[in-house]
């Protein structure tokens, strides 16, 4: 809650505030100006106007400090990204091991590795991109076949989402078999977003 516009008689102690000769508090004059709620008094009072003038002057003089969202001169994003990723690669989160073949065979693939392949497979359906890809496996029957839960962005223009999902499922199953050799029991597909895809992937920045 912000306080009302009418000032107390004097600035609170230790506030850095100042009572202008016209009886208004500097803090309130500035706040009113910033919130664009100046009243008649402020528009005509020379003390208030001077106070606002100083704030405007400050704003003008700091414009040179502001570069908006640009990076400073001489900044190389690539070098910083390299340093960050060097550390990140020491702290990978590969997920859980999934059995390649039967669990007893002692052959495994890490979930995040398999997920990358399956996401890439989903994106072969035009306009589709995979977001989440969780892979589990059911050890109950001893076959260790995997269950895939995939979230996808589908193109807004899709007329038949069920068919689209079926195509994605097909690509995922083919990739799991041909590229990984991972036995798949089930692929669950959730359409999480419908996105406007202008032909290809050229969006560059968020929203």
């Amino acid at each position: 809650m912000t306080t009302g516009t009418h000032p107390p008689a004097a600035p609170p102690p230790d506030s850095d505030d100042e009572l202008l000769p016209c009886g208004r508090l500097l803090s309130q004059v500035w706040a009113a100006w910033e919130d664009a709620v100046t009243d008649d008094h402020q528009r005509t009072c020379s003390h208030c106007r001077q106070a606002i003038g100083e704030l405007e002057a400050l704003r003008t003089s700091v414009r040179d400090l502001s570069h908006g969202t640009e990076a400073p001169d001489g900044f190389a994003a690539g070098a910083l990204a390299h340093r960050v990723m060097d550390v990140v690669r020491l702290e990978l989160r590969p997920g859980k091991p999934l059995p390649l073949g039967a669990p007893d065979d002692g052959m495994w693939i890490m979930e995040s590795v398999a997920a990358r392949t399956l996401r890439a497979a989903a994106s072969r359906v035009p306009g589709v991109q995979a977001s989440s890809c969780r892979i589990g496996y059911d050890d109950a029957d001893g076959t260790g076949r995997a269950t895939v839960s995939l979230g996808i962005q589908a193109p807004l223009s899709s007329t038949d989402l069920a068919e689209l999902a079926e195509n994605v499922r097909g690509q995922v199953e083919v990739a799991a078999d041909q590229h990984l050799g991972l036995g798949i029991a089930r692929v669950d597909i959730r359409v999480t977003d419908l996105v406007d895809v202008p032909g290809s992937t050229e969006e560059g920045h968020e929203r």
């Binding site: 570069h67 908006g68 969202t69 640009e70 990076a71 400073p72 900044f75 994003a77 690539g78 910083l80 990204a81 960050v84 990723m85 990140v88 690669r89 990978l92 989160r93 590969p94 997920g95 979930e111 995040s112 997920a115 990358r116 996401r119 977001s131 989440s132 890809c133 969780r134 920045h205």
Partner: peptide
């Protein structure tokens, strides 16, 4: 993707946001 351990997806985010954040 990055939250699920895809570090290359994270690398894209780093490169995309680094400039504005350093600013």
């Amino acid at each position: 993707r990055a939250a699920e351990g895809d570090e290359e997806a994270f690398a894209v985010l780093v490169r995309r946001h680094a400039g504005a954040l350093v600013g």
